[in-house]
Design a protein around this nucleic acid. Structure first.
Length: 818
DNA sequence: TTTAGCATGCGAGAT
DNA sequence: GCATGCTAAA
């Protein structure tokens, strides 16, 4: 608590408060142009407020205006507002937009940030109350797993049965639900039984010994501190007079508890979110938090933002139609004053490659202007996929046709191996007792220090109660590690000591095992006498042999890695020292740089939340892929509803044109599979959908489309996707005749029932022992007939289940052009 | 200690 | 199909 005295944050801007008179005279530009609902949300400052903001309804605008309003009216000072976001990007953007609204830089706002950044700040102040030193390190997922692996190994548990990564994930889940080891229900340990809980407890113990926390701990420690020290909690309740939370539907239990503690005094808590866009259940988000808000905070005002400024009428209607299939939502009706625009486009393809080819062509056409629309720049187009491996087909295709694209959410800069290695070097220099970092670099590059040598270091460190680095020093000095490895180890240790010495300015001799606290007095030394941290970083990478390691590497990715290292050094420029940089990196992960060329964006549906594009492509709408089979298997109805919200998020990203597509065949893990159109396609309201027929596909592959597919589709009675499939390649005279002979069932069936109600007639074209041909699998013999699903023993590809629609009778003259 | 070769398993990914 | 991570052999 003593740390309050030297607090920057609470001092800032606390000198004068704005008088009511000043406020009356002040213009309120931040209110300009708000619609009535937004304005109500901005002006309802007191008490709990739930701002239910549908997609594209100007949520961020209202939220920032609300902050501006709090400030402009003098209701709160910048340091009295606690504004929480999930991502650093969102926090940054909010700061910028508030500043723009205020027409002046917003100094202060020290408490606008992510849950984690704010908790780091708080926890550094009160670390001792959690049994930590204020310079604790923050472990990322990789460190966590490595630590867990050590524990599992020490326990002599079969690592195969209980992989460290999986256990780390389970512990993460517990932390998301605010469950400390003593609170985990025994039944919850799952396959790990009590053992998992024991390991969790041990893991926490190790973290304490390492003076480290993981992301989940940041919240949990603060909750524990607040619960144990009510006086402290009350101070913060008084300080944070107004609380704002963005994306409330994404909060987990721990975040919810933390907020509830802080808001308990005044209840001036305004949460903003959209239950229909809750898509992060798998990482602990609880839709329940937003659904329950009115109960949690009695007297809450619920304000709905429903006027959409992004999408056309047809797109909104299609999205609404899909999301209406969900139960347990608060309910909103999006509307627009804009025009209906284009109907949502729907198209079926033969396989994934063809889907990619068609979308590539469609993008080129749209760039020029097509389907009666003005040209759209590739910058305004996005392809949103369910799973990142779907991106490959598009990347391949776009590379061949030379269509520029960018991928969002690939492996992140700071997650790449070389960057993590380099940063581990920095970490050891900054904190010599960062065992995990030392472990990472001790044999990178190879120094002849394998498992055996490292075990020796570990043992010495343990038995002497010192850091791993000290253990290594002991091992080297006592000759416990000798030979080539010992020599190399000495060189590394000398290097580390030298670099640390350089960092500290070389004024003070570095005693072995010097505490990190040295850093706290760094300011005492004249800057001129210190080597710049950038030069230092370069020297570390050179002298350690790390750069040389990649220069010697002949694999194709080596040059890229060296390039990345250069970028890393460049990134150091905006920081004062290595420690500041490491701090930043542990919390922030993003790196996007752009040249000016217009590019199509390729990303996952998850990554697209909050973004908008004039033209959006939604490929891969096939049951099992989207909705994901795994989501449905593991979470049942709950999982399906989250997938449906994902569909809703996808459609509502589109401003002017939204194109949904599916493929009949797809290679999944190297195996060809026939795919069923997504049940979400059946849920699209037909009046707002236009089924496209791709030109230029006729004659493609000759008879490959000559399957019974239209028949099967029609018999299944699914209107839209049948039409889409029919409009595709299946256009031979043969099946037009078949279509004409088939009566269409009038009623659409519920999606769930669809798979059950297969009409045997539809596939009567094939019988047991028939010889058939399949585009991908080749020739085979029918071994089973189950509705429209056939078991076929292919001559080359083996036994498979395929839909009759993708088979041709072999031997029928003219049917088999291959 | 390093490496080649085989088994395994696979969804979204902020902090 | 591919990346990861282990075992066996050099």
């Amino acid at each position: 608590m003593s740390s309050f005295d030297d607090s920057d944050a609470f001092e800032a801007a606390s000198s004068q408060s704005l008088s009511a008179r000043a406020m009356a005279a002040r213009p309120m530009p931040h209110l300009d142009g708000l619609n009535p609902a937004q304005r109500a949300a901005v002006e309802a400052l007191e008490g709990p407020v739930l701002m239910l903001a549908g997609a594209g309804t100007g949520k961020t605008r209202a939220l920032t205006a609300r902050i501006a309003h709090l400030l402009q009216t003098g209701t709160a000072r910048p340091n009295e507002i606690l504004a929480v976001t999930f991502t650093n990007k969102a926090a940054r953007e909010m700061k910028l937009r508030v500043a723009a609204l205020m027409r002046q830089p917003v100094e202060g706002m020290p408490w606008l940030g992510t849950f984690h950044a704010i908790c780091v700040k708080l926890l550094r102040r009160h670390a001792e109350l959690a049994g930590l030193k204020s310079n604790f390190t923050i472990l990322d997922t990789d460190d966590q797993v490595r630590l867990m692996k050590q524990l599992i190994l020490a326990e002599e548990i079969d690592e195969k049965r209980w992989p460290a990564r999986q256990l780390a994930g389970i512990i993460d889940g517990w932390k998301n639900r605010a469950l400390t080891p003593d609170k985990v229900p025994a039944a919850d340990a799952g396959a790990f039984n009590r053992r998992g809980i024991d390991l969790y407890a041990q893991y926490q113990q190790r973290l304490r010994e390492l003076n480290a926390v993981d992301f989940g701990d940041l919240l949990l420690h603060m909750i524990a501190i607040f619960q144990a020290h009510t006086d402290l909690l009350q101070q913060y309740q008084r300080w944070f007079r107004y609380i704002l939370v963005d994306e409330y539907q994404d909060t987990n239990v721990a975040q919810y508890l933390w907020l509830r503690l802080l808001a308990a005094g005044h209840s001036n808590i305004c949460v903003v979110g959209d239950d229909d866009q809750s898509i992060y259940g798998w990482r602990g988000a609880e839709v329940g938090n937003i659904l329950r808000f009115e109960k949690d905070f009695p007297g809450a005002q619920v304000l709905r933002l429903e006027q959409n400024y992004r999408s056309t009428g047809h797109i909104l209607a299609a999205a609404s139609g899909v999301i209406a299939g969900n139960k347990g939502r608060l309910g909103k009706t999006l509307w627009t004053e804009g025009e209906d625009g284009k109907k949502v486009h729907l198209i079926g393809h033969w396989d994934g490659e063809e889907e990619a080819r068609w979308i590539g062509e469609e993008i080129e056409a749209m760039t020029r202007g097509t389907r009666g629309m003005d040209p759209i720049s590739p910058d305004g187009m996005a392809i949103l996929v369910r799973a990142s491996h779907q991106m490959r087909a598009f990347e391949d295709r776009f590379l061949t046709i030379g269509l520029p694209y960018r991928v969002i959410g690939g492996p992140r800069f700071y997650e790449r191996m070389e960057i993590r290695d380099a940063m581990a070097y920095f970490r050891v220099v900054v904190s010599p007792d960062d065992d995990l970092a030392f472990e990472r670099i001790v044999n990178t590059p190879k120094r002849g220090l394998g498992d055996k040598a490292q075990a020796t270091m570990q043992k010495l460190a343990r038995s002497n109660g010192v850091s791993l680095l000290e253990g290594a020093r002991l091992a080297a000095e006592t000759g416990a590690i000798g030979g080539k490895g010992g020599k190399e180890l000495k060189a590394l240790l000398d290097g580390l000591a030298r670099w640390r010495d350089l960092m500290l300015g070389g004024l003070r001799p570095v005693t072995p095992g010097a505490a990190d606290d040295d850093l706290l007095v760094e300011e005492d030394r004249p800057a001129a006498e210190r080597l710049s941290h950038i030069e230092l970083a370069e020297r570390i990478l050179d002298e350690s042999g790390y750069t040389a390691m990649w220069q010697a590497d002949k694999t194709p990715e080596a040059p890229g890695r060296l390039e990345n290292l250069k970028e890393l050094v460049k990134a150091l420029e905006s920081f004062e020292n290595l420690q500041g940089f490491l701090e930043h990196v542990s919390l922030i992960m993003d790196n996007e740089q752009e040249d000016g060329e217009p590019k199509v964006t390729l990303m996952t549906l998850h990554a697209a939340k909050g973004l908008e594009f004039p033209a959006v492509f939604l490929p891969g709408w096939e049951d099992g892929l989207f909705p994901s089979q795994r989501a449905m298997d593991e979470e049942g109805m709950k999982g399906l509803e989250e997938e449906r919200r994902l569909a809703y998020v996808g459609i509502t990203r589109a401003e002017r044109v939204c194109t949904i597509s599916f493929a009949g065949n797809r290679r999944v893990y190297g195996q060809w599979q026939s795919q069923m159109p997504s049940r979400f396609i059946d849920e699209l309201p037909e009046d707002h959908v236009e089924v496209l027929t791709p030109p230029g596909l006729y004659g493609h592959g000759g008879g490959m489309g000559a399957s019974a597919s239209p028949v099967a589709d029609l018999m299944r009675g699914s209107d839209l996707h049948a039409a889409a499939a029919r409009a595709d390649v299946y256009n031979s005279p043969g099946w037009k005749r078949l279509q004409a002979n088939q009566a269409r069932p009038g009623l659409r069936q519920p999606a769930e029932a669809r798979h059950m109600t297969v009409d045997a007639e539809a596939v009567s074209a094939f019988a047991l022992d028939d010889r058939v041909f399949h585009q991908k699998f080749g020739y085979g013999t029918v071994v089973s007939v189950e509705g429209d699903k056939l078991g076929v023993d292919f001559d080359k590809a083996g036994a498979k289940h395929v839909l009759g629609r993708f088979l041709v009778a072999a031997g029928a003259a003219g049917d088999v052009p291959f």
